[in-house]
Design a protein around this nucleic acid. Structure first.
Lengths: 143, 143
DNA sequence: TTATGTGCAAAATATTTGCTTTCCG
DNA sequence: CGGAAAGCAAATATTTTGCACATAA
C-alpha cells in the first residue's frame, strides 16, 4: 500500500472512519494518475479490481475525499473531474478538441490571492484557473 | 431596444438567423444583469414578459449565444451560469456560503496567456479564473 | 412563402439518496 | 459486535432533443 494512503488511514481512525477496500482502490487510482478523471472513469478502473463496486460508492467516496481536501474537484463542462494532486497549487490547460488536460504551475497564485482578498474583502481559501485552447496534437491533426 | 441588441440582430441577418421575441428578451435579461444567472433564473425572468416561453428555448438560445461568443458560460458547481459581460476579460470571486459572485479585473491575464502558450504549446483562446471563499456579508453572519 | 425557431414532452445525462446488507476495527 | 460504509435501484436535477406548429424576414 502507498505510504500516502497509510497516512490517510491513520488520520481516519481517529474519526471513526474506515479504510474499506473500495476506498483503498479509489484512492490508489486517483492518487496515481495525473489525468483528472471523471467519476465514471474511476468507476471503470476500480471495477477491474472490485467488479461489484457500485457507481454510487465511487461518487460517495470522491465527494468525501473532496470535502476532506484530499482531492480537488474541477467542474468545466457539465461533468465533474477529480484531481488527486493537491500538494501544490497549479492551473489547468484544457484542449477544446480532445479534452486533454495538462497542469501548469504559475507562481503568481499566492500573491494574487492576497490581492483579491484586499480588493473584494472576500476571505479566499481556494482558486481555480483554467486555460482553454487547442493542444499540440490537435493542432497537427487539423492541418 | 438596446443598441447592442440591434447590432447583434444586424450580424444575424447575414446568417439567416432571426431575432425572435424570445431571443430578444433573453438577450435583454442576460446583457442587463451582472449577476451571472443560471438558465432557470433567465427562464423565470423571461416568463414575466413571455409567459409561454419554454425552458428548452432558454437553453437553446443561451447555448447558441455561447457558441457565438456573445455570452460566456461558467461551470463551477454542477449548474451552469451565464455571463453576459464579455467585453473585457475578468475573473470571478465566488462565495462558498451564499453563492454570490463578483467580478474582478486582473491585468495579468493577457501576459499569462502568452506564457502558458509558450510553456505548453497549446493555442489558448480563453481562460477562466475563479476564486472561492467567504464574502463580507457571510463573514459577519457567522460571527 | 419558407425555413428558422418555438413549445411541449419525453429522453438523456449526471449525481444523490433510502434502505438493506456487508464488513472494518 | 456495533456502527460505518457498500450495493442496488429508484429518485433528483439538469440539460438536450424530436416533432408538429408558429412566425420573422
Amino acid at each position: 500500500m502507498i505510504k500516502q494512503i497509510e497516512e490517510i488511514h491513520e488520520g481516519w481512525k481517529n474519526q471513526g472512519k474506515r479504510l474499506t477496500k473500495q476506498k483503498k482502490i479509489i484512492l490508489e487510482i486517483i492518487k496515481q494518475t495525473r489525468s483528472h478523471p471523471t467519476a465514471d472513469w474511476v468507476y471503470e478502473q476500480s471495477r477491474k479490481e472490485l467488479p461489484n463496486i457500485s457507481l454510487g460508492t465511487v461518487y460517495r467516496v470522491l465527494s468525501q475525499l473532496t470535502i476532506e481536501g484530499l482531492i480537488n474537484e474541477l467542474t468545466f463542462e457539465k461533468q465533474r473531474h477529480f484531481d488527486g494532486f493537491v500538494e501544490d497549487l497549479h492551473s489547468h490547460v484544457i484542449c477544446n478538441d480532445c479534452g486533454k488536460i495538462v497542469d501548469i504551475s504559475l507562481s503568481y497564485n499566492q500573491i494574487l490571492q492576497e490581492f483579491v482578498e484586499t480588493q473584494t474583502n472576500y476571505l479566499i481559501d481556494d482558486q481555480n484557473h483554467e486555460f482553454f485552447g487547442i493542444c499540440p496534437d490537435c493542432q497537427n491533426k487539423n492541418n
